[in-house]
Design a protein around this nucleic acid. Structure first.
Lengths: 144, 144
DNA sequence: GTAATTCCTAGAAACTCAATATGAATTGCA
DNA sequence: TGCAATTCATATTGAGTTTCTAGGAATTAC
């Protein structure tokens, strides 16, 4: 039950854009160098974020990317779900059901729903702005 | 970030053994029929549970499996970790660290630790006995 | 001794992951 | 106007994982 590199890199990418934001567009090459991630792989990842309107791209020399909104407008859940797909641990735990004949009286489904809620409780309440604060060193005593 | 069928089947297998326990050993063939899971696949899964001492096997005719302990002695976390491997969402969030050069001031690591705690908070507090109760229909108003 | 069961190992088809490769499109600037 | 820097789009690939299936060996109640 691992978060893939795609989701993790997307998060670091967005956090990098937030951290090094200065009005000027930020080149992917610089993100790749700072985060030690392949630039080509980052291209694929940011393409998803771009199509979703999470970042704005400027082409050509002096081009790059900027965040579309402020860091507190992006939850970790938004970014992970976009790049990673659903975060629900079991398919039958999302939506209203109808996927499984065993659904009535299915004890494990109740379990998966609880697990889903616990995961959402974290990812939907932490924002890029929180990550920036934690980065500054105050992370250990932050409580959700 | 999905739980694989192996972990889910292991849980249903253990729950089935708990539910249909009667002193007599329970044949895998019956579990397979009730749970609609391939018997051959179940063999592989129960082999892990057997080696870990979670179930006891009786060979030969009238053979089968029985739970080694009572249902409240098995947490969902024990069963999933055994069959699924670690449940930690990102490798660097388990143990004491030393895996990553970026570790100091790594905001995302703090996030992954929080997510890990949230997941453990569910799986380490729900037992097979809880699942049995939920199966009986009282699931919806159960609160951890 | 036979049939019912568990036990063991190998293999295979499909899928996912984590990139890499190649080149086209766009555009600021000399 | 043309060059170079950047984003954009698509295809491919190698490794690994998942989810089984296959075949048979070992054990044992009757």
């Amino acid at each position: 039950m691992r978060i893939s590199t795609k989701g993790r890199y997307a998060l670091r990418l967005m956090l990098d854009l937030a951290t090094y934001s200065s009005g000027e567009p930020i080149r992917l090459k610089d993100v790749a160098r700072r985060q030690e991630i392949s630039e080509k792989y980052l291209e694929q990842i940011i393409s998803v974020l771009n199509k979703a309107g999470y970042v704005r791209s400027i082409r050509g020399p002096q081009g790059g990317y900027v965040l579309q909104k402020t860091p507190q407008d992006y939850t970790v859940g938004m970014i992970l779900r976009l790049t990673e797909g659903s975060l629900t641990p079991v398919e039958c735990a999302e939506g209203e059901g109808g996927l499984c004949s065993r659904e009535e009286n299915c004890a494990t489904r109740i379990l998966w729903k609880k697990l889903d809620e616990a995961i959402n409780g974290v990812v939907d309440h932490v924002t890029l702005a929180d990550l920036m604060e934690w980065q500054a060193g105050a992370g250990d005593d932050y409580v959700i």
